[in-house]
Structures are given as structure tokens and as C-alpha cells.
């Protein structure tokens, strides 16, 4: 990352991920849950700010070093910065803890960047419009 994410953003990201993977025992289930989160966040952001806005955000979030990070690269099926569509494969090759840490840092940085522009509360609203699908949510509350 270009700079360390703030503790608040890191905590929010951790809770987002924890909420998503709650109850997922097997690595594959955890990978699917994290993939669902990435897909939902990507769709939410693309819907709100457009493709260009989303890509610009991701470029800002991912520094040059991170773009070459083998873990983050493994989460993408293409070189497009914004496509986090290979999370399951990334888990298979790097393991749940490594991918979770990478995603946590990525989401935290995204919250920080977006939060500096529109406020932390709005950043979370834009990322997590509806929260997880009801089947994956334990209590339906936002993190």
C-alpha cells in the first residue's frame, strides 16, 4: 500500500470480512465468501461512481508495489486493476490467512481513500450498500 491504512479503516475492513466469512469452515467456502464480498463491493462502487471512477479509485488505492504483489495479482484473472474476480483461486494458492490479510489491507485503504473524499460514513455506505445477502448474514446488521 502507498501508506498504512488507518486503524479505524482496518478494523472496519476486518469486520466486513469476518461478517462475510462467518461460518465458512473450509478454505473453499471462505474463498467463495470473500469473492462474494469483493464482487458486491465492486458492483456497488461501479454502480455509484461508474467504471472510470471505480478504476481511478483502485489505481489510487493500489500503489505500484501492490500491483505487482503476488497475492493481489492472484486475486485477479486479468491485469485490469479493478477486477478482483479470482479470490477463490487466490485462496487455493496462498491460503485463507494470506488472502484475508491482503484483502483486509486493500479494503482498509479503499475506505481511507474514499473516506478522505466523502467521509468515512459515506465511504462505507458506498462500499457496502446493502450489506451481505441475508443468507450470509448472521444478524443483518452492518459491521
Amino acid at each position: 500500500m502507498t501508506s498504512a491504512p488507518s486503524p479505524v479503516a482496518r478494523d472496519t475492513a476486518r469486520r466486513l470480512l469476518a461478517r462475510e466469512v462467518a461460518g465458512a469452515g473450509e478454505p473453499e467456502s471462505a474463498g467463495l465468501a470473500m469473492q462474494a464480498l469483493c464482487t458486491r463491493i465492486t458492483e456497488n462502487l461501479r454502480r455509484s461512481v461508474g467504471d472510470d471512477g471505480y478504476n481511478a479509485l483502485l489505481v489510487r488505492v493500489l500503489g505500484p508495489t501492490d500491483e505487482a504483489d503476488p497475492v493481489l495479482l492472484a486475486l485477479r484473472s486479468s491485469h485490469a486493476v479493478g477486477s478482483l474476480d479470482a479470490v477463490v483461486a487466490g485462496v487455493a494458492s496462498h491460503g485463507v490467512p494470506t488472502v484475508t490479510a491482503a484483502l483486509e489491507a486493500l479494503l482498509a485503504r479503499l475506505l481511507d481513500v474514499l473516506g478522505s473524499l466523502v467521509g468515512p460514513d459515506m465511504a462505507l455506505s458506498l462500499l457496502d450498500l446493502d450489506g451481505p445477502p441475508s443468507s450470509a448474514s448472521s444478524n443483518g446488521q452492518r459491521p
Partner: peptide
């Protein structure tokens, strides 16, 4: 009218209630 810029500036107004988004 980039959304982020729009929200960034509009939320300066008292009427902008972040609780209403989304």
C-alpha cells in the same frame, strides 16, 4: 458530474443526511 465529487461537496450542506444514503 463525478459521483464522489458530487457527494463530497453536497454533504457540506446541512440538509445532506448521510444516514439516508443508500
Amino acid at each position: 458530474e463525478p459521483t464522489i465529487k458530487l457527494i463530497r461537496y453536497q454533504r457540506q450542506f446541512a440538509f445532506f443526511d448521510p444516514e439516508k444514503v443508500p
